[in-house]
């Protein structure tokens, strides 16, 4: 019962997010700040993770496709498919649920427990619009982050493959180019936009409606991570079934 109550509350929050908008002069600054906090500050970790996981995926693929039966370009082909279809949009989003999601929950949750949200409300400010909307807009740049993750993942895979001696550069590049379906990119970016919206709103919901003190902020961050991951995984399945199934 509580589950459905919270889903209803979440949609009411989304509706309120578009009511009585904050002045553009203020909103512009909030969007820039949130872009820095959520997107720009995640560049380092996303680049690092993508490059090395790309390498690991390639090594594992190369080791399990030895023998003359497999074409030499298969490693590059499989790396590309894995990274574009699943690793970059979904796994990176789960990493971001931990990094950005818990940041959003704890920052909004701290404002709740220290009455800063009440202060906004009694001033006549739509606190949901003020706090959540700029994060949604900032995360519209999330596909840019995923593009970098895709590029660095494949680059990491290529580096591991070539320098690890599993394949040649030309075979790997041939694999990347083989049977490329442009719609897979569209599918990946549709997923990314949906995940960006989930990444901004689900953690914000957990922070905004938090009750209690400092301990509850920690608990809400953990809970928000779990629910963001669950939502991403469910939507990943639904979108994949709808677009590729």
């Amino acid at each position: 019962m509580n589950f459905f109550y919270n889903i209803g509350k979440y949609f009411i929050m989304l509706q309120k997010m578009f009511q009585k908008p904050t002045k553009w002069r203020v909103m512009k600054q909030l969007i820039l700040k949130d872009t820095e906090d959520t997107v720009v500050n995640s560049l380092g970790i996303i680049s690092f993770v993508s490059f090395f996981i790309g390498g690991v995926i390639t090594i594992q693929l190369a080791l399990s496709t030895t023998g003359s039966f497999y074409p030499k370009y298969l490693v590059g082909f499989a790396t590309r498919e894995t990274i574009i279809l699943e690793f970059a949009p979904t796994i990176i989003s789960i990493i971001m649920a931990g990094k950005v999601g818990s940041f959003i929950t704890s920052s909004i949750g701290s404002m709740r427990v220290t009455e800063q949200i009440d202060a906004l409300e009694v001033m006549g400010i739509n606190s949901i619009n003020y706090l959540v909307f700029p994060k949604v807009i900032a995360l519209l740049l999330y596909p840019f982050l995923i593009s970098i993750a895709m590029f660095l993942g494949i680059l990491g895979g290529m580096a591991a493959c070539v320098y690890g001696g599993y394949s040649t550069m030309s075979d790997f590049i041939l694999g990347i180019q083989t049977d490329f379906i442009p719609f897979h990119m569209t599918y990946a970016f549709i997923k990314t936009f949906v995940f960006a919206f989930i990444l901004a709103t689900v953690p914000a919901f957990h922070g905004y409606y938090l009750k209690g003190g400092a301990l509850e902020v920690g608990k809400a961050s953990t809970l928000s991570f779990i629910w963001t991951c669950v939502t991403i995984i469910v939507f990943n399945f639904l979108i994949t079934q709808m677009l590729l199934g």
């Binding site: 009585k20 009694v122 006549g124």
Partner: peptide
Amino acid sequence: MNLKSNIGT
């Protein structure tokens, strides 16, 4: 909301 803009807390 407009009324609240006349309130200080």
